[in-house]
């Protein structure tokens, strides 16, 4: 350790703190969130085994559900079960990503590094928005893999690229809402091991009581109603519609207005959960 006197050291000044105007504050929040997104992506690059894990789960979903269950499942109207299933698998993968989000936030919150972040003149929200940003990028990667898998097992989009892109957009919007749910969970249960135990019993019934595997009209009436109003179902139904995949129908209001709900549910969830998560984060270790 040398003790050379450094003459060009930038000095810590108040100007490096976010300025007080709301617009500039927002700009700094975006910049800091992007820097934190980069940090989280570097984590992924530095632990390649995680990348394998990212992709093995969705691929497994397609193969297991498409071939094992798919042989015995019926689709309303005429159509292949695998083509019915794929949009559901897309959405289910988004849901299960919630566990990774929650445990990674819990890991961050439990470590000393969060003290450093809190002592820096950065936007307070950046640790959380950086997580959301990185998880959206991860979701985009997972979706790409799923689309390739889907094409290999015979799934197609049939309404043109524009509608397909809109469907992907809706799926990512739902993922964003689920990310914020994961962030809140990770902050409430700040123990990474506990988090992953909690997520499965939460996620599993949510997929079972939806239109991911079975069309709601094939369920008993009361179950079908729950399934139709499930936020997951809205996104799945809207995606099936936009991709031109089979399995539409049911006469319920929720099924008729799937597109509206596919936008409304996630926006509502984000509007409620994101402020709660930020509040919770600011109250950590007080």
């Amino acid at each position: 350790m040398s003790t050379t006197v450094e003459t060009r050291v930038p000095s810590g000044r108040a100007e490096q703190a976010p300025p007080s105007g709301p617009l500039t504050r927002l700009r700094w929040a975006v910049v800091d969130g992007w820097v934190m997104t980069g940090r989280n992506m570097r984590h992924v690059i530095r632990s390649p085994e995680e990348i394998v894990l990212y992709f093995s789960l969705p691929i497994m979903f397609v193969l297991v559900f498409g071939y094992v269950f798919g042989s015995g499942m019926a689709v309303p109207g005429d159509g292949s079960y695998r083509e019915f299933l794929l949009p559901g698998v897309f959405v289910m993968t988004m849901l299960y990503g919630l566990g990774a989000t929650a445990s990674q936030i819990a890991v961050d919150a439990g470590r000393g590094v969060v003290d450093r972040f809190r002592s820096l003149p950065m936007a307070r929200s950046a640790l959380l928005t950086g997580r959301a940003g990185a998880d959206l990028l991860r979701a985009l990667l997972e979706l790409s893999v799923l689309v390739v898998c889907g094409l290999l097992v015979g799934w197609r989009w049939r309404n043109g690229l524009g509608d397909a892109a809109a469907a992907v957009g809706l799926i990512l919007l739902l993922r964003l809402a689920l990310t914020w749910l994961g962030i809140l969970l990770g902050l409430l249960v700040p123990n990474p091991d506990t988090v992953s135990v909690i997520v499965f019993p939460l996620a599993f019934p949510l997929t079972a009581l939806s239109n991911v595997f079975v069309a709601p009209e094939l369920l008993p009436e009361w179950l079908g109603a729950i399934a139709a109003w499930n936020p997951l179902s809205a996104t799945v139904a809207a995606a099936r519609d936009l991709f031109g995949n089979p399995g539409l129908g049911g006469g319920s209001w929720a099924a008729e207005h799937a597109l509206l709900l596919a936008v409304g549910w996630p926006v509502l969830l984000i509007a409620v959960i994101a402020p709660l998560a930020v509040r919770r984060y600011q109250r950590l270790s007080r």
Binding site: R39, R42, H43, R46, R111, G112, V113, V114, R116
Partner: peptide
């Protein structure tokens, strides 16, 4: 406790 990112 050293407040650094252990993965980076």
């Amino acid at each position: 406790y050293a407040a650094v990112d252990e993965t980076l």
